[in-house]
């Protein structure tokens, strides 16, 4: 169903979304509302004050199969990417994870040993992701702002690349444990939350790709120029 291709500014925004439903996430993180009628990607971005090349870079990166290549395109706007990532952080921490947690509780409504440790696992996971994301908010994003304003700080993006954990793999771990070992009630609610976990992990993977393949190379370039 998914149309795997590369989109350009002349393509229809509505087509992009109906052909790739997970682009909904990208739109809302760029702050683009729905209802774009027949407008092209270029037009919709323009109306909403979004840098089209940066938008397309994120879109096309997310549609790419396999591991992402470094896309160090100097015309991209680093501040647009950090804004996008910041919105994604809020979405995961304040919306997506709490919903999954509620649904997990509902799906495993009897209080068994397994449900207790599954919820503990998820709480621990949320704490870990929160730590990871707030590190970016406190260190990486201000560093980008500093670089753009020509201010120097002591941070270097190479430090980040090293401590960049694969946060989506922990979620896949939970998914696989539930699939393989969970023996409690498995009704519609359980299937639904499993599905949520699956799509959330995929969403996180794409989020990490934007950091690794778009933001990190851009910052490296900015750091080089600043030297």
């Amino acid at each position: 169903m998914t149309a795997k291709k590369t989109y350009s500014g002349k393509d229809s925004m509505a087509a992009l979304v109906s052909e790739n439903i997970n682009m909904l996430f990208v739109l809302s993180r760029f702050g683009i509302p729905m209802g774009f009628g027949e407008s092209t990607i270029d037009e919709v971005c323009g109306q909403n004050g979004v840098d089209t090349p940066t938008f397309l870079a994120v879109v096309n990166l997310n549609l790419q199969d396999g591991p992402a290549k470094n896309l160090s395109d100097p015309s991209l706007k680093p501040e647009a990417i950090t804004e996008y990532l910041h919105n994604a952080h809020e979405y995961f921490l304040q919306y997506r994870f709490p919903i999954i947690k509620e649904r997990l509780k509902e799906a495993m409504n009897e209080k068994t040993d397994v449900s207790v440790v599954v919820l503990r696992f998820f709480d621990e996971y949320i704490a870990e992701v929160k730590k990871h994301m707030s590190y970016e908010e406190k260190n990486v994003f201000p560093h980008v702002r500093n670089l753009l304003q020509g201010k120097s700080d002591n941070y270097q993006i190479s430090v980040f690349s090293k401590r960049h954990d694969q946060i989506e793999s922990r979620l896949n771990e939970l998914r696989d444990i539930l699939i393989k070992y969970y023996k409690g009630a498995t009704g519609h609610a359980f299937n639904a939350v499993l599905f949520d976990i699956f799509t959330c992990a995929e969403d996180l993977r794409e989020h990490n790709e934007v950091e690794d393949a778009l933001l990190v190379p851009l910052i490296e370039q900015l750091e080089k120029q600043a030297r």
Binding site: D113, V114, R120
Partner: peptide
Amino acid sequence: NIHSSAGLTVYAIASKLVRLEDIGGGM
């Protein structure tokens, strides 16, 4: 394919290798 101790705990409980009271407040 489980790399965290929290994951191992879920596995151990689900496979009945340990009971919740055995691990107490361990994690």
